[in-house]
Amino acid sequence: MAEPSDSPVAAAADPVTAKALEALQAALPDAVVDSVLTGQHPWIQVRAQDLRATCRLLRDDPALRYDCCHLISAVDFPAPTEGEPHIDVVYHLVSYVVRPEASYAKRAEKNDPFLAIKVSLPREKPEVPTVLDIWIGADWHERETWDLMGVRFTGRAELPRILLPEDWPGHPLRKDWEFPASYHGVPIIPPEGL
């Protein structure tokens, strides 16, 4: 990602995102842990127990109306420079009501960034409440995050894998995932062996 100073629009905080942060701090004073509002990908980190309330507020606030959960991703930190090992789950939100611009390039041009909501989860037991009832489109993203990163989304009826076979060993995008010696009789040469 480019340094914020490289971009002519990046230095200023995005006004809609700033409004979102204000609304969050007013409604849920303890929820916000950290935030960066500049750049093309501003983010707000909230506590995991406040995630659902945060999401509801962002979706329903008439000035914000984040009506689309564009993407859910996760980042693995097995040995962070500070703090405990953790996994961050990142929700990328878009408001097609307040800002109907659909293309990512156009959004960047007009400084209409996506908003990322982050939660940090303990690495041994990453569990976060589902947002499936808030954005129905979150369904496949939650399944994918479970499939590849092993983050449990609680409160939904079932959480099957989406891409890998049901009996696949582990969650391969974890940084400490080990290649199995073989899968269904097909041998696998791990990266060190090649």
């Binding site: 890998l164 391969p172 995932w177 290649f179 097909v186 041998p187 696998i188 990266p191 090649l194």
Partner: peptide, 15 residues
């Protein structure tokens, strides 16, 4: 995908 693609069979002649 041979090296880091965990999901790719490293040669169809294994199958």
């Amino acid at each position: 995908y041979s090296k880091f693609g965990y999901h790719v069979v490293q040669g169809v002649d294994l199958v």
